[in-house]
Write a protein that binds this DNA or RNA. Structure first.
Lengths: 207, 207
DNA sequence: ACCTGAACACCGTTCAAGT
DNA sequence: ACCTGAACACCGTTCAAGT
């Protein structure tokens, strides 16, 4: 689109293909991401992508890695500039849920099974570990300052991530609950319900 | 396979196609579910399915409705025979998470976005409402016996479902966390971590 | 009603070839 | 290295036709 069609050099095509695939993902979902469709959007022959991606799964994995990279960046950014590490954790959770809500297809690709064995893609693996490390570091800092209780920071980070991921999944999968959720105030209302439930539990006469 | 090829009558083919599609879903994931592939498995021409399903999305919706039906049945079964309604809720939660863990592709289909506008498929909608109603009824019963605190049963059911769905999603999406989760005792260990986190929170010196 | 075969425009993937 | 065109076996979907 920028210059003559087909004039890609030093990795420009790979970038253009990923950009095209990203557009396809947001517009049509995972099933709309194809090597031929991406090539068409990028203005090259249907076969050019194979110079950069071994197969279809490999470009999906690249999108997932990109998404995890962005998640990690956002989490790191959200964690900065808080005196209280607990505040930082809340900010991290918010950015996590926001990304899931804004780009549900990407979120599904990052954590779903569209890419069968994600551990086989180093870029995906490393991007995931980087994001996870933001959590661990934040918890470590909180433990140093006394804001967070003692205990294995790995365990605390894992448990915290799990909870946040559960909440994010609710936003993305909320379609079945959506109808009622909307009556109760949409996603924020749902979040309030959940946290209230966790706080109060179901049993009566709490002290 | 049972009789002569192509000898289907009074809805047998629809059932056979759903069975085939179900096998394809478990074996190859949502992208493996195709009308042609299902027709091949059922031993009919590639075009016969269009007598029973308008398009590919429609057979996916039928699978989702089937899954929600089974979920509802299992939930209703799990809810029976408990004196304490809170016990019944735990049993419901266990069966929900079990179904998600046993058939992750089906679970994704039921709550994901593979079928774009699920509200447009009455079978999906009704099956979802039926499953939801099991929760509401159980909570109502618990409120009558005094086992569950007062409050809107719809809100309590929604909040409870949301939490359980979040936990189930963790099992299904746990691949990114899996590596560490395994070290910490797999899915049960993860569940323990999460409930501990919810119970203790992150702050130090709780009274 | 229910099934079939031919046809169309799409896929992913491989191969042989061009610069 | 990077890109292309032809080819193959698959798709979803439509049409005209058979019983």
């Amino acid at each position: 689109m920028a210059k003559k069609e087909g004039s890609f050099h030093h990795g420009d095509l790979e970038w253009a293909l990923l950009e095209a695939a990203s557009q396809l993902l947001e517009k049509e979902g995972p099933s709309g991401v194809g090597l031929r469709a991406a090539a068409r959007l990028a203005g090259v022959s249907h076969n050019a992508p194979y110079r950069h991606f071994r197969n279809r799964e490999s470009i999906l994995a690249a999108l997932a890695a990109r998404g995890l990279d962005e998640l990690g960046d956002r989490m790191a950014k959200a964690a900065r500039g808080h005196e209280d590490a607990r505040r930082a954790l809340v900010a991290i959770a918010e950015t996590y849920v926001s990304l899931a809500a804004e780009r549900p297809h990407l979120f599904r690709l990052m954590f779903g099974q569209e890419v069968a064995d994600k551990e086989r893609y180093p870029a995906v693996r490393e991007a995931g570990l980087r994001a996870y490390q933001v959590l661990v570091d934040t918890i470590l800092e909180g433990q140093r300052s006394g804001a967070i209780r003692p205990g294995s920071p790995e365990e605390l980070a894992l448990g915290h991530w799990a909870i946040v991921h559960g909440v994010a999944s609710l936003h993305v999968d909320g379609r079945m609950l959506e109808e009622r959720a909307r009556e109760r105030g949409g996603a924020p209302g749902l979040a309030r319900l959940v946290s209230e439930q966790i706080r109060l539990g179901l049993e009566p006469r709490r002290i």
